[in-house]
Amino acid sequence: MLDDRARMEAAKKEKVEQILAEFQLQEEDLKKVMRRMQKEMDRGLRLETHEEASVKMLPTYVRSTPEGSEVGDFLSLDLGGTNFRVMLVKVGEGEEGQWSVKTKHQMYSIPEDAMTGTAEMLFDYISECISDFLDKHQMKHKKLPLGFTFSFPVRHEDIDKGILLNWTKGFKASGAEGNNVVGLLRDAIKRRGDFEMDVVAMVNDTVATMISCYYEDHQCEVGMIVGTGCNACYMEEMQNVELVEGDEGRMCVNTEWGAFGDSGELDEFLLEYDRLVDESSANPGQQLYEKLIGGKYMGELVRLVLLRLVDENLLFHGEASEQLRTRGAFETRFVSQVESDTGDRKQIYNILSTLGLRPSTTDCDIVRRACESVSTRAAHMCSAGLAGVINRMRESRSEDVMRITVGVDGSVYKLHPSFKERFHASVRRLTPSCEITFIESEEGSGRGAALVSAVACKKACMLGQ
């Protein structure tokens, strides 16, 4: 009897593995994704193909990295998701002549009506938060230079001027797309009239992360975010950046690689679950690469896999709870928690219980395998993109072996128990001629924006502006 049951459990697990095998990517698959990513990057950089390229390769006008001589107080704003952060950054000489960066910050959550109302409502709310922060720190009387981390696709015309191309991540505030974001912020500050600010720089969160990590390690020339969304930036040779005049030196390019796949480059790798996630998203047909990796989508992918296993009578005796059938019910943090389970399955059992399920031991094991399959594919897909960037940098610099540091931020990278190990191992397999160091950014977005502002202020002083 026991043997029969054991055989049935083994057969069930084997069927589960057959279904989950769809998520496995072979090294040849990853090399294919990497080569296609490089081709799209090239198209994004070139003037004649930029418009139709899915990977936009947006110039950021960040050319210099901090040298350690900029000092002063800077205000930093960070808008990239449902939370908005205001930070005071003091850049100065530390002990023994070292450079020191001290920060104080406060988080504000953005109400739904500000995210989806008008641009005026959104930026009025942001300036209200700045006003509140300055009151708390008794700094209303000071006109501070301000660095703005704005983590949406922007076409820069200068370091302090950028046109919002399109909202992502659930934002829909009308009247912002096609307009200068810094102008919208300046107008809102003017409307309030109770404080003055000098907006000197606007950067993407990947750029802010790279600059913040450069402060720790001067070989950091790539910034990457794996959180709600997924994106990367890197220092490109100016001669390859056709959208900006000049051939000397390097400029940081914001790849906006989340949109890779929007022209069909990933079609052969998309599964039924991916198509369902895409169809029910706020932007169907867009940001397809990001939807395979980002935390906004990972939990939902797992939920759809679990429903398939229920329908195949391989999980929960073929019956799903009402909660499990509800879109968004299986949160991405559950994926991390399930994979963090120590082996007694308590954590998995508790999560499934909150979803109205009474799982068996085998159910718990199957749910864990589903989570591992989805998150491992995410790590491997992400590795193909980064390997594409790094191999490109090595080739354009004609280096036999390139040493490089990548600064990384984002909740999936930082909080998932195995993502970074799987990701690092896969990147290294795909970049055999590179020695890569990964560092995690601390308060990256805010500190990085302030350091970019410090560079901009120093330049302005040198130019006598």
Rank of each mutant, 00 (worst) to 15 (best):
V253M: 14
N391Y: 04
T342D: 10
G299F: 03
G464R: 12
C371N: 09
L288M: 15
S127N: 00
Q24L: 08
A208P: 13
S212F: 04
V101C: 12
L271N: 12
L314P: 06
V310N: 13
C233D: 01
R368L: 09
L324T: 14
G170C: 04
G343H: 11
N283H: 13
E245Q: 14
Y234F: 15
V305M: 15
E248Y: 11
V241P: 04
M57W: 01
R403W: 12
L75H: 02
S411G: 08
G117Y: 00
N313W: 10
M87N: 06
L243I: 00
N179G: 04
G229W: 01
M115V: 07
D42Q: 08
L185Q: 07
G464F: 10
E9Y: 13
P284N: 14
L355Y: 10
S151K: 05
L77F: 05
A201C: 11
F438V: 07
S64Y: 15
A320N: 15
V199L: 02
E435A: 09
W99D: 13
R85S: 01
F150E: 02
V335M: 14
E440T: 09
G294D: 00
I126D: 00
R333E: 10
K414S: 14
R333V: 14
G97E: 12
L77Q: 01
V406Q: 04
L386M: 05
S396F: 10
H424Y: 07
L430C: 02
L2M: 08
M402Q: 10
I130K: 01
R358K: 11
G299W: 01
A232P: 05
D73R: 10
K39F: 09
M462T: 12
I189E: 00
L165C: 05
M87L: 03
H218W: 13
E312R: 12
T342M: 10
S127P: 04
M238R: 09
T332V: 05
R191P: 00
P59C: 06
M251R: 12
H105F: 08
L357A: 07
P111A: 10
Q347P: 14
S418N: 11
D341W: 06
E395D: 13
G448D: 04
L276P: 07
I225K: 05
E96A: 12
E221C: 05
I348Y: 06
G464N: 10
L324K: 02
G97C: 12
D194C: 07
S360C: 12
N283Q: 11
N231M: 00
S383T: 04
E279H: 14
V305A: 10
R191N: 04
E96Y: 11
Y289S: 04
D158H: 08
K39M: 12
Q219V: 15
W167E: 03
G261I: 09
G299D: 03
I439H: 09
T49A: 07
A10Y: 13
L266N: 13
S383M: 05
V207F: 01
V338F: 15
E421V: 13
C213P: 15
S418F: 09
L270K: 09
Q18P: 07
G162P: 00
G170P: 01
A379N: 04
G162M: 03
F260N: 02
